[in-house]
Design a protein around this nucleic acid. Structure first.
Lengths: 337, 337
DNA sequence: CCGAGGCGTGTTATCGCTAACATGATCGGT
DNA sequence: ACCGATCATGTTAGCGATAACACGCCTCGG
């Protein structure tokens, strides 16, 4: 044993070994132009030899900036948000940023504000809030304007920079697909109506019906769970005029599928069903589910780029980006019997 | 407008306002005992008035410690890992730690080493690696011993501190449940065999059969996807002697369910099926799936406590904790026809 | 051939905090 | 009433980096 704890090598140690000043080491590290090639190599060698790694805390202290991005997300395992988060973490990692995730049990004003505060404490460079419902969006009013912020899946009406999947376009495509199969109209099992995703899907569904002058049946409101889809499905299964259902996500669709099955209404022979999300197992539902697939990786990329723009340009870009989803056709849609 | 950028208030600003030295402010912040109550209040008031927040970078610089925990996880949306991660983030957040997630595309040695390095760069207090397969576990050999490390779902054979769900116990319970229903034996559709989770479940399944002197059929190897379950199910459905199937996770079970359905083999009347994970939608499969539910929140809590022990005690606890899962009975199991 | 200016490098100050030591006031025991 | 211990607080010295400026040396235009 030598010292009690052998101190990590610091810049001065590298400098001493390379026979230069610590400032020169700093210049090499930050790719400053005015360093002789030979010196640069010498310093690099010393860095390697000592296994030196820069102390981010010291750098953050003097520059006032970190390479950390804070994300606020709900503590749920819903497929959409989870995919988004995962994709974002990967994208940020590739860009050299660390991602600190602050989970929140409920998306209310207070919890979100607290999570944002914790991130500010960490002096994050910017914050991403996955704010898919109105209470979350409301909470953003509390976020000070001096912090770069991007909202994902947030309120399209609000002026914050926003990246979102084009819910309405996806729903429109799904509904149109059912109408084109020959169904006189399409029923809709909606996610919770305070979620923008759900609201956007209702919009797209309604627009598609209106465009074709199809009757617009009442929205069947649910939450995102298979349980709620099952309940909605039990009701719809009893109504013989229901031949086509667009569910606001795949798990709702799964519940509908099961309810139809129990009532002896065959899918797609008697009733056609379309979902949204394209969860990995959707292709193995009974029957394989036609659904709408959002591109979460694209959302993540756009979110990161929007955030980094704000970080570097120092001003709120106030822009928004929309990612178009795509219809995936499988076997849960057929012409009406 | 005042200054170009108004500097965040620092400790000295608080000190000036409260009429004390910055050290006293530091003492108040760190709950040192030797501060007069009156002074403490005065300082607290000043902190509030200025909206002061301590600069973590400065603190980290002088103490050499951060309040950051690094997590290395695969970039997947598999239910188990995603739930675990989410639960861990919440638990850590409640304990006042920030969690930095490093996602990795594949769990190979190189990627994991790189992710660990990135975390060391950040001077994290400790690292959690979700290392559910052998390549991931191999990579841990590269992790320097001076960094607190806990493995989740990792290799039970390795000496690293480890928290894991008791896969074998869960599988044992599932298999026994099927045998008790009267099935002569139970077939097993396994997850990828280089995953410890899958291996543990195979073990538990085999032990339950052997214990009852039931014939041990060959393992049907698959990955974690519904697609693979479907394929395995197609094969099993053709074999009339198959009356009970234990699938290594719920999505595999879903695929099996679909294959059985297509072949006209009714579940549970002709074939009983049990899964593992209890994904939220499992109760809405056709039929509702009997499955094994791991307690991810408990795993997260234990992981955090094990890690913090190492952080504070400075030594590798070399201990391991196992969380027992629970069998959830629904409608996919019945006595053989 | 000289001064301006760029290049390569070093020196010093500073970021905001905690640790360690210093200091004066208070207090209890004899 | 004196002395050492304890308390409450202040002072000073870094932690490890970057920024700003200083300083030789070389190049080049007039």
């Amino acid at each position: 044993m030598d010292q009690k704890t052998v101190r990590d090598p610091a810049m001065t140690d590298v400098a001493r070994l390379a026979g230069v000043s610590h400032q020169t080491v700093s210049r090499v590290l930050n790719d400053h132009p005015n360093v002789r090639e030979q010196t640069r190599l010498r310093v690099r060698a010393a860095i390697k030899e000592l296994g030196y790694r820069p102390n981010r805390a010291a750098r953050a202290l003097v520059t006032g900036k970190t390479q950390l991005i804070g994300v606020v997300a709900q503590n749920s395992t819903l497929y959409g948000p989870a995919s988004l988060l995962s994709a974002f973490e990967e994208a940020a990692g590739e860009a050299g940023f660390a991602v600190s995730v602050g989970r929140v049990k409920v998306l209310d004003r207070e919890s979100i504000a607290a999570a944002v505060e914790r991130h500010r404490d960490q002096r994050v460079a910017g914050i991403v809030v996955i704010a898919p419902n109105s209470s979350a969006a409301d909470a953003l009013a509390d976020v000070p304007a001096d912090l770069p912020l991007v909202t994902v899946d947030g309120d399209p009406e609000r002026p914050t920079p926003l990246v979102t999947v084009d819910q309405a376009a996806g729903a429109y495509a799904a509904t149109e697909h059912l109408l084109e199969a020959g169904h006189p109209t399409v029923w809709h099992v909606s996610g919770p109506t305070d979620w923008f995703d759900a609201a956007g899907r209702v919009d797209g569904w309604r627009r598609a019906l209106e465009r074709r002058h199809a009757e617009v049946p009442p929205v069947v409101a649910a939450d995102w769970s298979a349980a709620a889809g099952y309940k909605a499905g039990q009701m719809l299964a009893r109504m013989p005029e229901v031949t086509a259902v667009f569910a606001s996500n795949d798990h709702l669709a799964l519940g509908v599928l099961r309810a139809m099955h129990e009532r002896g209404r065959r899918v797609p022979h008697d009733v056609s069903v379309v979902g949204f999300d394209d969860v990995p197992e959707a292709a193995y539902f009974i029957p394989p589910l036609t659904t709408v697939r959002p591109d979460f990786a694209a959302v993540a990329r756009e979110t990161l780029s929007l955030l980094l723009e704000q970080v570097s340009e120092g001003e709120s870009a106030r822009s928004r980006r929309t990612i178009a989803p795509v219809l995936v056709q499988r076997e849960s849609v057929a012409p009406p019997a």
